[in-house]
Design a protein around this nucleic acid. Structure first.
Length: 223
DNA sequence: GCATGATCATTA
DNA sequence: TAATGATCATGC
């Protein structure tokens, strides 16, 4: 999908307004407006919905490591939900640093910065609904409350401790209550540098931070 | 390889 | 059947 950027929103209310305007539309309607075709399935187009929404809302960052709405400091996340508004998938946050992170703190961590302010766009996307018929839901502009921030911090610190102490290969998706670390790579043969059990550098699978469904569920149900 | 956007598909 | 581990596309 090749899309030239639309006009970026100048204010938060302008962004919300745009998001409200596309709520209730299906992906066929959005694709027509954008001038792209709808894929049969998302197997080879896993980021398609997200990129389509970025276009409609005028996100500017592209593949740069900055918020989608840089000027507003807002990150855009589409989230697949079932008919009851419950999340169907975990939510990718950012890459998990595996080296050079011994002095990092939660307050300045990429995870916290990414999640500081997020515009969530639910998409009714049960697997048996054809991509073309999936519906856009109402937007939720969210920032973590103190309890959520503390919960994420606890998981983040547990996970980062393991990375720093050379236990990256002992981390599984079960580690962490709300924040987890899972592979984030083209395939399982991809390697990056990490810290081994004796403090040496090792080759290991690149990982990313993800929000578990039990966390995003809270956000979606807080409306 | 890493950063963007995530969902797929096998396993437990 | 939900969750974990694996995977897909794209740009630089």
């Amino acid at each position: 999908m090749k899309l030239e950027a639309q006009n970026a929103p100048h204010t938060e209310s302008e962004l919300i307004e745009k998001a409200m305007q596309i709520a209730g539309l299906n992906l066929t309607q959005l694709a027509e407006i954008a001038g792209v075709s709808v894929p049969e399935n998302l197997t080879r187009d896993k980021g398609w919905t997200g990129q389509l929404l970025e276009w409609h809302l005028g996100a500017t960052a592209g593949s740069k490591p900055v918020p989608d709405f840089e000027f507003l400091g807002i990150e855009l996340k589409t989230i697949p939900v079932d008919r009851n508004g419950q999340p169907l998938e975990t939510t990718y946050v950012c890459v998990a640093p595996l080296t050079g992170c011994s002095g990092q703190t939660w307050m300045t961590s990429p995870v916290r910065i990414k999640l500081n302010r997020v515009l969530w766009i639910p998409v009714l996307a049960e697997r048996d609904i054809p991509v073309a018929q999936r519906l856009i839901g109402y937007p939720i502009l969210w920032s973590p409350n103190p309890e959520q921030d503390a919960a994420l911090q606890a998981d983040w610190e547990e996970l980062m401790d393991m990375i720093v102490l050379g236990k990256v290969n002992q981390i599984t998706a079960k580690t962490g209550e709300y924040l987890q670390i899972r592979p984030k790579a083209a395939n399982s043969r991809v390697k990056t540098t990490g810290i081994g059990e004796s403090g040496e550098l090792i080759e290991t699978l690149p990982r990313g931070f993800y929000l578990k469904k039990n966390f995003t569920k809270q956000i979606l149900n807080m409306i």
